[in-house]
Amino acid sequence: MSKEAAFSVFCLENYKAYKSLTGKQTAELFRQYGVFDYLNEFYDVLHTTGYQYINHDIDIYLKSRNAVITA
């Protein structure tokens, strides 16, 4: 597994817990709105930050795409 893929899994697991979602819900949300692509593109910067910053950054990213998060 690449370091970018491992980072995406880390982000998915942390965001899932942060929003009280299931893994399936979180994976679908990330796929639907391109979060995996975003995390991969900005891996160099994001992997140096903490999980709280990353969760907040994902929230901003999803909000800018008018994402609907259903728990």
Rank of each mutant, 00 (worst) to 15 (best):
M1A: 04
S2D: 09
K3Q: 04
K3V: 12
K3S: 10
K3A: 02
E4F: 14
A6C: 09
V9E: 07
V9D: 11
F10R: 14
E13I: 07
N14V: 07
Y15R: 00
K16I: 04
A17V: 11
A17S: 14
Y18Q: 00
Y18D: 04
Y18H: 02
S20K: 15
S20W: 13
T22K: 03
G23C: 03
G23P: 02
K24Q: 07
Q25P: 15
T26V: 00
T26Y: 08
A27K: 07
L29V: 08
F30Q: 00
F30D: 04
F30H: 11
G34Q: 02
V35M: 02
V35G: 11
F36A: 00
F36K: 06
F36N: 08
D37W: 10
Y38K: 14
L39Y: 03
N40C: 12
E41C: 13
E41M: 13
F42G: 15
Y43F: 11
Y43E: 05
Y43I: 10
Y43K: 09
D44S: 14
D44H: 13
D44T: 10
T48D: 05
T48A: 11
T49S: 13
G50P: 15
Y51W: 12
Y51P: 12
Q52F: 10
Y53H: 07
Y53E: 11
N55S: 02
N55I: 05
N55F: 04
D57M: 08
D59Y: 00
K63D: 10
K63G: 08
K63L: 12
S64N: 11
R65A: 03
R65F: 02
R65P: 00
N66Y: 09
N66H: 11
A67C: 00
A67Y: 03
V68L: 04
V68S: 02
I69E: 00
I69S: 03
I69F: 06
T70D: 14
A71C: 10
A71R: 13
A71T: 09
A71I: 06
